[in-house]
Amino acid sequence: MAVRTPRQIGEDVWKTRIEKVNAELVTLTYGSVVAQLCKDFTNDYIQVNEQLDKMGYNIGIRLIEDILARTNSERCRSFKDTAEMISKVGFKIFLNITPAILNWSQDNKQFSLIFDDNPLSDFVELPDDGKAINELWYSNILCGVLRGALEMVQLQVEAKFVSDVLRGDDTTEMRVTLIRVLEDEMPVGDE
């Protein structure tokens, strides 16, 4: 069987094996979640971020199985491969986006995902209360998802947003750092 690039895998699954729903349903539903959390935590945006991260984590640990089931892909040989899979397959399948992978650190343990497009934050304008713009990471659920999903493949990572266009920054950037590998070895080769 020919080896496929992550991008090809992502595209293929996206086109053929996914049942689709209206994007606005997801955008609006996620919006209602964030709005509800802000109410529940009385606009303590730090707590909202934490809750979103927790929810994302719970999703991530189950979502990874979904990806592995759909793609039958090989184990990643390096953290760089992992990054490619996250962007071209993971985000492609679930959000139909492929964030750019940039700013690798010297030791190849840190990289950034740059989001040009993000269905979760379509049409969102942060509240004008002076706090949200400094404290809320609207799409923070994605950090949790990454953390949960990668933990299931034995990678302990830290993921957090460092900038967000909703806050007036130029880009929306998530920084992903590999803390440690949870297993002794990562077997190379076909599953």
Binding site: S32, A35, F123
Partner: peptide, 9 residues
């Protein structure tokens, strides 16, 4: 409608 679409409005 664009204003309304924001979850914070």
């Amino acid at each position: 409608v664009k204003t309304l679409m924001s979850p914070f409005y």
